[in-house]
Nucleic acid binder design. Structure first.
Length: 843
RNA sequence: GCGGACGUGGCGGAAUCGGUAGACGCUGCAGACUUAAAAUCUGUUUUCCAACUGGAAGUGCGGGUUCAAGUCCCGCCGUCCGCACCA
């Protein structure tokens, strides 16, 4: 085939990308009176190169954005950069480059990579969170929350790396050691800034109910994360005259309590440690214990008897020993628990070890009051036994009754407890938003005055030593108190990068210079109509963004409750892995297939094909988007991203798959070239079957794009293409090819534009065209295929006019020779007829 | 341990309400065109029996409901994911 009849993406891609840019095709107009669509994909971290996972993510969003535009919507489809974070600082430490220049250079590269894929983005709204034009507004928002009392400072335990002199996130502690330095991580108390997300626990939980276009999985994960439990706060008098307060979800089991246990950090434990060396040693041992999942699972329940006892509120003769225990957490509830061994497994284990009484207070029925335990606790439902006046009550009734009594007598009350904790946002790092606070010697932490915002990061910084470069900068932190004018010290911690991504979707919608956003413009675009990203953000980012939005709404800056009306979590892109005989990884293009086996191309030694896994550099199974766009063009790559796998599942990259997409691009191109083919005579013909197929395809492609079922939309387009190719020339065929250009436009925009421009051309851009309308009258089949079953087994199919009455269908079915052969003279007991579908003859 | 999702050909996957299982793509095989290759086109590709018409089995396993089950119900098995000493 000559080059002229091939689609050449290297020429076409850039041509159309330039034209879209010149014409501002995808620039969103705030003032538009069209219906609006805000399509957003999670913005990338500028690591240096676009990853194939980004390509999949942005292709999905792009299809939807282009489709909505063709439906006549004003579409907001922005892109920007989540540009603060540790990798930039690591690069600074390793290569001596400034985090800012490293980041900005990466952004340049990645922007160019994205542009090559032809995404319908409004680049006018692009921003990077690392620029003062963004983070300055973030500081203003932070101060608004500070004024409203939603930000506070408190001492908190953190993972401290003594070598790097920085706080580490839990994920950065590997086997108790710092991930970079390898140093033993210490628990250290530091003053940290917190956002009061717990104030919104109930709202955030209830709000999930309205998010019916979110995956159930994500809602459930958030629900569990918030972790609401209903119970009672109970107070017991101690032998030393003080009081111990515990939270329990099972106040009904109070008669089964046989001990109390407190966390190592609990004041009672601290007091005991001060008075007694052994107690101090035990407390130390508890703190040294690992916190990894595996360690916790195998860790033995250990306790230390403080010698104190607690008075049981219902039994004056009953004194419960108070232990310090390694399984009690300080930061949940009150840091103290009531031990009920019979009905809680941990308490059971503990009581068994220390020979404490195990009392049954819940049983299947009253007769089982003395039934022994079968080696484990019984946390289930039942009725109360051995519980004095409460005997016979069901568990739920008993909870209410005992809480009511506690309230009456003043030793407790009903309480709702959350697992969710306040969000610690302080980071001892340079490359983040400076926390806009000044520590005044007289007034404590004071907000930086608004006219001094942004608090910009200093450029001249030193990464040669570990620790926070802001803290050791010679001048930056030395300021004066905004109130007294006396010397004061700037806060040198920066904000968690999750703060940056908690409001970027607002800034995309509205970006005035003098304030974070204009609520009136926000009101036009928000909530985001479709948000697309990886499920790894199911909890943190999505919960923080929901919180931030609600917090801004509560303080009156905004009127949006839920930022993302519809959420879609896409799967990963995976690829086969290969290994050498010696176990080292091989890239997929270093091997080839040799019969059923794989061999290394370079030296013909055998290779082993490993699992299909998420692309990662270490396993050498990555493909670079630039390389494949070079080879196949943007459209083939985009088409591959949408084909085969349902978008929520993983997509396996394969050479054969992308080759197939490339062939399809060329097939389409040949077909587009035939748009007016067949001559005048042929053009007069109408092909009803093809017309119907076309309109069925329009309907199904539309429906599938709406549902983000791109793999099904792709299949429908293949199906139509096959049908057009097989059909003989006719006006219908030309029309079908014409419409096919529109149908593929959201997915393969470059070839669609190229085809739209060839004669007979309607002019303009296909990107601005209207999405084809379905002719409902053409959807109706006039003939249908009826399945004929005998005793539920398919024996024949017959063709019938649509809507044929039941008795006629039955007659038609019975007329079938195959059916008669299968009935074989037997008596017909019953005939089931489903109009336009099937006839089942029961013998 | 708790919670959730999923199991369909050689592979990715389709299959509105329970109504023709395997659409569509990939791979493989056979053929056409070509000096040849590439590209393209045609046929074929769940398994087994029969090889002309056909027949049987079949959606992880075992039961059940129904005229009819991939789909609904009960019980297993397996894979993946999230949380995890949360009182």
């Amino acid at each position: 085939m000559s080059e002229a009849t091939r689609f050449n993406p290297h020429v076409a891609d850039t041509r159309w990308q330039q034209i879209w840019e010149e014409q501002g095709t995808f620039v969103a107009d705030d003032a538009s009176d069209k219906p609006r669509s805000y399509v957003l994909e999670m913005f990338p971290y500028p690591s240096g190169r676009i990853h194939i996972g980004h390509v999949r993510n942005y292709t999905m969003g792009d299809v939807l954005a282009r489709y909505r535009k063709m439906q006549g919507h004003e579409v907001l489809h922005p892109m920007g950069w989540d540009a603060f974070g540790m990798p930039a600082e690591n690069a600074a430490m390793e290569k001596g480059v400034h985090p800012g220049s490293w980041t900005r250079e990466n952004i340049e590269n990645m922007r160019a990579q994205l542009k090559r894929l032809g995404f319908a983005l409004d680049w006018n709204r692009e921003f990077a969170t690392c620029e003062p034009e963004y983070y300055g507004h973030e500081q203003a928002l932070f101060l608004k929350l500070f004024e409203a009392g939603l930000v506070y400072r408190k001492e908190s335990e953190v993972n401290w790396d003594p070598v790097d002199m920085t706080v580490l996130a839990n994920e950065q502690v590997i086997d108790g050691k710092g991930w970079r330095s390898g140093a033993e991580v210490e628990r250290r108390k530091l003053s940290q800034w917190f956002l009061k997300i717990t104030d919104f626990a109930d709202e955030l939980l209830d709000g999930l109910g309205s998010l019916d276009k979110w995956p159930d999985k994500v809602r459930l994960m958030q629900e569990n994360w918030i972790g609401k439990s209903q119970g009672g706060l109970l107070r017991f008098g101690l032998s030393n005259g003080e009081t111990i307060e515990v939270f329990s979800t099972r106040p009904d089991t109070i008669f089964g309590a046989s001990f109390m246990a407190v966390a190592a950090d609990h004041p009672i434990a601290q007091a005991a440690a001060e008075a007694d060396e052994k107690a101090a040693a035990f407390v130390k041992q508890c703190k040294a214990g690992g916190t990894t999942a595996a360690e916790l699972e195998t860790a033995e329940k250990l306790g230390f008897d403080t010698g104190l006892t607690a008075q049981h509120p219902f039994d004056p003769g009953k004194q419960l020993p108070v232990y310090i225990a390694n399984f009690v957490l300080m930061d949940y509830g009150t840091g103290a628990v009531m031990g009920v061994p019979g009905h809680d497994q941990r308490d059971f284990d503990f009581a068994s070890k220390y020979d404490l009484p195990i009392i049954r207070v819940v049983a299947q029925d009253a007769a089982d009051a003395c039934k022994p335990f079968d080696g484990e606790a019984e946390p289930g439902d039942g009725v109360l036994v051995n519980s004095g006046e409460f005997d016979g009550l069901a568990v739920e009734e008993a909870k209410a009754a005992i809480i009511a009594r506690a309230e009456e007598e003043g030793w407790g009350e009903g309480q709702v407890q959350y697992r969710l904790r306040d969000w610690g946002v302080s980071r001892q790092r340079y490359w983040g938003t400076p926390i806009p606070i000044i520590h005044s010697p007289d007034y404590g932490p004071v907000a930086v005055p608004e006219d001094q915002l942004p608090v910009a990061l200093p450029e001249d910084i030193d990464f040669s030593a570990p620790g926070n470069p802001l803290d050791r900068h010679p001048t930056w932190k030395h300021v004066t108190c905004p109130i007294s004018g006396k010397p004061a010290v700037r806060e040198t911690d920066t904000l968690d990068t999750f703060v940056n991504s908690s409001w970027y979707f607002l800034r995309f919608a509205s970006q005035p210079e003098d304030r974070p956003f204009d609520p009136d413009v926000i009101a036009k675009w928000l909530p985001v109509g479709q948000y697309i990203g990886g499920v790894e953000h199911a909890i943190l980012h999505l919960l923080y963004a929901r919180f931030w939005t609600r917090a801004l709404t509560r303080i009156g800056m905004l009127d949006v409750k839920e930022p993302f009306a519809s959420l879609f979590t896409q799967g990963m892109v995976t690829h086969q892995t290969f290994k050498h005989g010696d176990g080292s990884w091989l890239t997929p293009d270093e091997v080839k297939k040799n019969g059923a086996d794989w061999i290394v191309i370079a030296d013909d030694t055998p290779a082993t094909a490993g699992r299909v896994e998420k692309m990662s550099k270490s396993k050498k199974n990555v493909v670079d988007p630039d390389d494949i766009v070079d080879q196949y063009g943007a459209d083939a790559v985009r088409w591959f991203m949408l084909s085969d796998s349902p978008p929520e599942r993983d997509l396996e990259w394969s050479e054969a798959g992308i080759e197939g997409c490339w062939r399809f691009v060329q097939r389409l191109w040949r077909l587009f070239g035939q748009i007016g083919a067949g001559g005048a005579g042929a053009d007069a013909e109408v092909d009803r079957a093809l017309d119907r197929k076309l309109h069925q395809t329009i309907a199904s492609v539309s429906e599938h794009i709406e549902a983000l079922a791109f793999n099904k939309a792709v299949a429908a387009i293949y199906d139509l293409t096959n049908a057009i190719e097989k059909a003989s020339f006719s006006a219908s065929r030309s029309q079908a090819i014409h419409v096919l250009r529109l149908l593929v436009a959201p997915m393969m925009p470059h070839i669609a534009e190229e085809a739209w421009a060839i004669a007979p051309s309607p002019g303009g851009l296909v990107a601005n065209e209207r999405w084809p309308q379905v002719d409902e009258s053409l959807l109706i089949e006039d003939e249908v295929t009826i399945a004929v079953q005998v005793k539920g087994k398919l024996r024949d199919t017959v063709t019938a006019a649509k809507g044929l009455p039941k008795d006629e269908l039955e007659a038609l079915a019975l007329a079938s020779e195959k059916v008669q052969r299968n009935i074989d003279g037997a008596e017909i007991r019953k005939v089931i007829v489903v109009p336009d579908r099937l006839v089942n003859i029961v013998i």
